[in-house]
Each structure stands twice: as C-alpha cells, then as structure tokens.
C-alpha cells in the first residue's frame, strides 16, 4: 500500500518522535488516504510503523468516526444531521439522497462512487442544511442542488 519511499519517510518520522503513539491518528489518516479505508492489512502496517500492538490501532480506528474499517466508495457523502441542519430540513435531504443513490445510510452505490454517511455538525450551520462530499463543503442544500452536486462529483 505505501510506497517504499513513503514507508521510509513515515518510519523516520515516527523514529523522530519521543512518543510514537502520538503519530497513530496521522498514520491512520495517511493509510486511509492511500488505501481508501483502514483495512486489516493497513491497520497492521500502521501498527508496524508506529511499533505498537495492532490492537492499539484498532482501538483508535474504531473510536473515531472518520476512520473507516470497512470499504467505502470513492467519495463519502457526509450529511450533517445535527440540530441546525435538522431544523432546516436535513431529513428530507437524506431521503432524497437515499432515493437518488439507491442506497441506505451507510451504504455504497453499486458503481462504488459514493458512500452515504451522517456526520455531526460540520460548523456550517449558517448555510444549513449542509453536507460534505469528501473534503468539499456544500451548503443551503435543496433537492435540485443535490442532483447537480451528485452529477458534478460523480464525474
């Protein structure tokens, strides 16, 4: 998964740390970026780089919401389901997305393009309802706008 060069860099980075465990979250992000999700193999790799038992990686990976231990689509659609978005009609958006993507919350489209997940308030309440596709933030959503976004993001 990591190139040899990247491995070397990461090993050096960890070696420079007084407390290698502090790098675990960074390493998990790295591995996830390289691999799409934190597979068993990736978790073991992270553990190896940080020189910790793999259970320590798993303990963190399963704690955090943004580390995926199961495969996800090429892009993850995070729909904010917290209070300001809720009051602005988030529930309808979810229905619309489920309908359009043909999947339930937590599901991945059959073409592997999208995974649909809820997310806690993303600090975009002023443009609620809001969602993120990957890192990209979209606000003031309407069903029409969502259709446009899906088309654009699928490309």
């Amino acid at each position: 998964m990591f190139s040899d060069e990247r491995m070397k860099k990461l090993r050096e980075y960890v070696a420079s740390l007084e407390h290698p465990e502090e790098a675990l979250v960074d390493l998990m992000h790295e591995a996830q970026e390289a691999y799409g999700y934190l597979s068993d193999e990736a978790a073991e790799k992270v553990a190896e780089i940080a020189n910790v038992p793999v259970i320590k990686v798993d303990e963190l990976a399963t704690f955090y919401s943004l580390i995926f231990r199961r495969p996800v689509g090429r892009k993850v659609i995070f729909v904010c389901d917290s209070i300001s978005c809720w009051v602005m009609g988030m529930e309808n958006l979810f229905e619309h997305l489920k309908d359009r993507l043909g999947i339930d919350i937590g599901g991945t489209t059959s073409d592997g393009a999208f995974t649909l997940l809820p997310i806690c308030c993303i600090g975009a309440c002023h443009v609620a309802p809001a969602m993120m596709v990957g890192e990209k933030l979209y606000g003031n959503l309407t069903p029409e706008k969502i259709d446009e976004i899906l088309e654009k993001e699928r490309a």
């Binding site: 068993d40 978790a43 259970i55 320590k56 798993d58 303990e59 399963t62 704690f63």
Partner: peptide, 15 residues
C-alpha cells in the same frame, strides 16, 4: 486485547 468502538457499542476483544 483491548477496547473497541464507543458509546453503547463499546466492545472488548481482539483485533
């Protein structure tokens, strides 16, 4: 052996 997941889904077990 350790603690996985969180909230009322907290799980104790192996990798």
């Amino acid at each position: 052996f350790g603690t996985k997941k969180l909230a009322n889904r907290t799980f104790f077990g192996r990798f």
